[in-house]
Design a protein around this nucleic acid. Structure first.
Lengths: 334, 334
DNA sequence: ATGCGTAACGTAAACGTTTACGTAATACTC
DNA sequence: GAGTATTACGTAAACGTTTACGTTACGCAT
């Protein structure tokens, strides 16, 4: 159906080699043939076949992205960072979900392998030993974004969750809060869960505040998780004046339940989130949150794997600085 | 580097044809050879090369998705719908942005063509004549989501923006609002802009309410657009009691500026949004909005193009029903 | 006249599959 | 025991490119 370089060659009366040369303008032909070939190509509506090209070149100019679930604002920014920079460098991105708890991770990686992506970016998925094996066995550059493993040979870009949580909670303490809850972190999540909990508890301890385990409401990073956490606080009649949330969406859930129960944020209770995703400045009140530079993480990670693809160099792990973005959801107590 | 079927064939002492047969289990071999081949494949860490496969089969099992900007919650739901169903049917999705105003649309389509995607889904991009030409010239099934063209041969799935806007505004009128603003629609956008404005004005006219052009604040679908619209209303000292927004994010922008100016939603002013994206139930107060079934649109559109790919049938355009989701951002006036 | 360099191509193999077709051996039919 | 199916393969072409290598023709120096 579609025209091939053979068709062009036949019509233009040259060889396929020459056609290939002018199309990729490699030189080695005179102006006349160039014009003729180009004209024929246009006339035939030629469009090069990247797959055939990939076959012989052993590289697909494609980078794969695996994320658990694309529905949250969190991933939107990251993927935009990835897609923008891969586009700039002539790479296409092929995307797949790893399922909500990474349930599809093996199929995903297999798919990426069969598609022969040149590099791989994995976002926020917790990888277990077998997954890591499968990943490294692909033999292509990869990087983890906003996650890591306990092995040294898996490069990642992320913030230091422990100290990010620490600064968030310290900020609350500096605002004279003493009874601070925590919501939305899963203690079994050794990457993004327990470090944040540990940062939270350590900040309390360092400032002479006893840790009350009842004030830690575990859960996922979702809006609903925040809602149920706040409901639990209310049922407990907990006397908290602030809550630190493991994600912005959790914070919105907290604030939403507060609203339903006529608890004012930040007058009755202060809230700080985590991520600085797009929703954080759209909330009412605007959310004070600790920022992960999501777009930049996507961009940076993408640049790293492209560099690794092209120069065959190792990718270094990188801990990027977090930053507290102060908005209006925290009240200074007197 | 990576093992091929030739390697397997050599080691297992059979032909590549046989290897191919057992790998795709097509039958035509006995159990022993099957086991041997499988064992060798495993031992060599064989992974099939989808690109080579695509070359001879003239189909890539890939569907392309083009969207203007993936950063808003709106697209998150749609793309999840697409990815889920394409995965279920054994297709991969390759994603690209068309730039903020479709500026990259030609490059995007070209890329999809060169990758030989089997089908194409275009989300929310307004297509002009040359783009439509380029699109149809690809010769593959495609569908537009949440957008359309003025030509009949470009199938789409979308809600009826005119009547969706109409019902939203009628709902406000039924709640005794008479002075109703509109924000965030671009009148030059003939797909999602002017129809919503027309629905808005017609609803007013049908209920004997004069249309005041000063109450229509044009803009984009963004949060910022909502904020500036509300600021304009305030500067105008407009006596509106409600505002209909062209998107949920615009509505959040309106509510945000209201909050800053101590205008209470819904007590002082009622707000209704558009999309029913994830943010709409996370807002304070929860947003009454007219729902586009985003996830289902993604799923449905994906199913259509897969059906078209496999059965070579035409895709029919489909106007799907909208629905008013009543939450807490509208107050009934007495 | 010889040699050499170079520009402008063409030839053909290679990439990793699939698949139409051929073939040998065995089983079955009557 | 001749003919016919069937099973279980192998052969080789094809998919659309790229590219190493060969070839021609010409220009130019000696």
């Amino acid at each position: 159906m579609a025209a091939t370089i053979k068709d062009i060659a036949r019509v233009a009366g040259v060889s396929t080699a020459t056609v290939s040369r002018v199309i990729n303008n490699l030189g080695g032909y005179n102006e006349e043939t160039e014009k003729k070939v180009m004209a024929v190509a246009k006339a035939l509506g030629y469009r090069k076949n990247e797959n055939a090209r990939s076959l012989v070149q052993k590289s697909t100019n494609t980078i794969g992205v695996i994320m658990p679930d694309v529905t949250t604002a969190f991933y939107g920014d990251i993927i935009k960072g990835i897609e923008d920079t891969s586009y700039e460098h002539g790479y296409s991105v092929i995307l797949t979900h790893a399922g909500s708890h990474g349930s599809r991770i093996h199929e995903s990686m297999n798919l990426m392998g069969e598609r022969r992506v040149d590099g791989l970016i994995i976002v926020s998925v917790e990888l277990h030993e077998t997954a890591i094996e499968a990943l490294t066995s692909l033999g292509i550059p990869f990087i983890l974004l906003s996650t890591k493993t306990n092995r040294e040979d898996t490069p990642y870009i992320k913030v230091d969750d422990y100290s990010a949580a620490y600064t968030a909670v310290k900020y609350l303490i500096d605002n004279n809060h003493r009874s601070i809850g925590m919501a939305g972190a899963n203690p079994d999540d050794s990457i993004a869960g327990s470090p944040r909990i540990n940062g939270y508890t350590q900040a309390l301890l360092d400032h002479g505040i006893k840790v009350d385990l009842n004030l830690i409401k575990p859960g996922g990073f979702s809006f609903e998780s925040g809602k149920t956490a706040m409901q639990a606080f209310i049922e407990d009649e907990a006397s908290i004046t602030a809550v630190f949330c493991a994600s912005d969406e959790v914070a919105l859930g907290i604030m939403s339940t507060c609203f339903e129960n006529e608890i004012s944020v930040p007058n009755d209770i202060s809230v700080v989130g985590y991520d600085n995703s797009k929703v954080s400045h759209m909330s009412i009140p605007p959310l004070t949150t600790v920022a992960q530079p999501l777009y930049e993480m996507g961009r940076e990670g993408c640049l790293e794997v492209i560099a690794a693809i092209q120069n065959k160099c190792k990718i270094e792990s990188k801990v990027i600085p977090h930053e507290l973005v102060v908005r209006k959801s925290v009240k200074k107590l007197t």
